[in-house]
């Protein structure tokens, strides 16, 4: 042992709370995180999970009961669930029906189904109607790119109007995985958010949430969406140390934040991403309890009441 190392370690230990040994015994037991204490803070609404098989490999939690158990272990009390089948299937009516049934059968009151419509397929309006009227879904989720249309599609404006008229949430997924590791058969375009801005300006009643969206390098599309529309966001794609806090907190000098915290929701992108990623992101930035409660559940409740 080199005793000269002690200052750094002592510093770390002194700034941490005591009781590491007992806590480690808990945290170190794989598959058995501590059961949440009922008296602890409220649960989390995860606005971005997806059920069924990812087309390109098995995911650790792609069986719904396993995913639900995993979410519960992390005090996620509600999850808005799309379906991986919507990426490539043509029969979205069938995919949506299976999603609704899966949420009923295995959701244990935790999963809320978000079916999908594909603007590139004919009669997508009927899929939307069934999602709303037959399956009582609170919203639908689009996967531009995989679904072979982009946000300049001429029907997108009508879909936004129809979802607004029905009181549905419209979720738009900007990316599912890093294009650098795509299967070679895939050649997906980058989804450009800019056409969304005028469409949302024309339909201010629309409730639209952008999933796995970080904006372009210059930040101009994010800026336009924040300033000119009422779009909501989740933070699974907000990468970088402290990025979440940097985007939602006022900058030094009181400059307004890039994204109002009240329009940001928790999204894990599970089971493709570990649920732990989103959870740790909440704690990585020095956020106060009020802000955390907003991100964890209050903002989601404003967008979609229980």
């Amino acid at each position: 042992m080199n005793t000269a190392s002690l200052p750094r370690r002592r510093f770390l230990c002194q700034t941490a709370a005591v009781g590491a040994a007992a806590a480690l015994a808990r945290a170190g037991a794989p598959g058995a995180p501590p059961a949440p204490d009922p008296a602890s803070p409220p649960g989390i609404v995860d606005t971005h999970v997806t059920l069924f098989r990812w087309p390109f490999r098995r995911l650790k939690y792609d069986a719904t009961p396993a995913l639900v158990a995993k979410l519960r272990r992390h005090r996620i009390t509600e999850a808005w669930a799309g379906t991986h089948e919507a990426l490539l299937h043509k029969d979205l009516a069938g995919a949506n029906e299976r999603l609704a049934a899966e949420c009923r059968t295995h959701g244990e009151g935790l999963l809320r189904p978000f079916g999908s419509v594909n603007l590139a397929w004919p009669d997508w309006e009927e899929d939307l109607r069934r999602c709303h009227e037959e399956h009582r879904m609170p919203g639908v989720r689009l996967f531009p790119g995989y679904q072979t249309f982009d946000l300049s599609h001429p029907d997108l404006g009508r879909l936004i109007q129809l979802t607004a008229a029905r009181g549905l949430i419209l979720q738009i997924v900007f990316q599912m995985e890093d294009p650098r590791v795509h299967h070679p058969l895939l050649s997906l375009p980058v989804v450009d958010a800019r056409p969304l801005v005028p469409l949302l300006e024309r339909t201010p009643a629309a409730r639209v949430q952008l999933l796995h969206f970080a904006g372009n390098v210059a930040g101009t599309d994010l800026r336009a969406l924040v300033d000119r529309t009422g779009a909501w966001f989740e933070f699974s794609r907000w990468e970088g140390n402290g990025r979440l806090g940097q985007l939602i907190r006022p900058a030094p000098g009181g400059a307004r934040p890039s994204v109002p915290a009240a329009r940001v929701l928790f999204g894990s992108h599970a089971p493709y991403f570990p649920v732990e990623t989103g959870l740790l992101r909440l704690f990585e930035s020095p956020l106060d309890a009020e802000t955390l409660h907003g991100l964890m559940h209050r903002n989601a409740r404003r967008l979609l009441p229980a």
Binding site: A23, A27, P36, I44, R75, L279, F283
Partner: peptide, 9 residues
């Protein structure tokens, strides 16, 4: 710990 992730210590 209430959310099943490690505390700072």
């Amino acid at each position: 710990a209430d959310y099943g992730i490690p505390t700072r210590d």
